[in-house]
């Protein structure tokens, strides 16, 4: 995928947005090639980026030894899955060489912080994704998305 647009369209979180909204998100994402063993985020550190998987696999190590593997195009390591109040709550490690689209946390948090149709669509998609990927976690709304 040459731009993040295709990847965003494949993501259950963002595919509810119309093409114009997706296009407006594209500049926020930058493309990283990641290698196995690379640590993208460390639990306890200040949260900087969220990651949208295009190719490869990420291991999101949560508390109590739990983990989620994100290995499908459009999987999103972000929001309450990996951070709480500006701090990483999970360690994200690369399991398989691939490509991720990286977006600064604040950009996404700003976007969903406003009361807008885009924010509502993203949050709907997120809740669906989160319930499927990490059903063992309690209601995402309660875990403090921001």
């Amino acid at each position: 995928m040459d731009s993040s647009a295709a990847c965003l369209s494949e993501s259950i979180i963002f595919n509810g947005l119309d093409a114009r909204d997706i296009d407006s998100l594209v500049p926020l994402f930058s493309r990283w090639t990641v290698m196995p063993g690379e640590i993208l985020a460390q639990a306890g550190h200040c949260a900087q980026f969220f990651f949208l998987v295009e190719e490869g696999a990420l291991l999101v190590a949560l508390e109590a030894g739990r983990a989620v593997v994100l290995n499908r195009p459009g999987d999103f390591a972000g929001l309450s899955m990996v951070s709480l109040k500006g701090t990483n709550t999970a360690t994200i490690t690369v399991l398989e060489k691939g490509v991720v689209w990286v977006v600064p946390c604040l950009n996404i948090l700003d976007l969903i912080g406003h009361d807008s149709p885009v924010a509502a669509t993203i949050m709907d998609g997120w809740q669906q994704f989160y319930a499927e990927k990490a059903p063992f976690c309690s209601d995402p709304a309660e875990t403090g998305v921001v």
Binding site: P36, N71, E96
Partner: peptide
């Protein structure tokens, strides 16, 4: 290569 191999086991 623990990361790649773990990915293999998952795949």
């Amino acid at each position: 290569d623990p990361h790649a191999n773990m990915n293999l086991l998952i795949k």
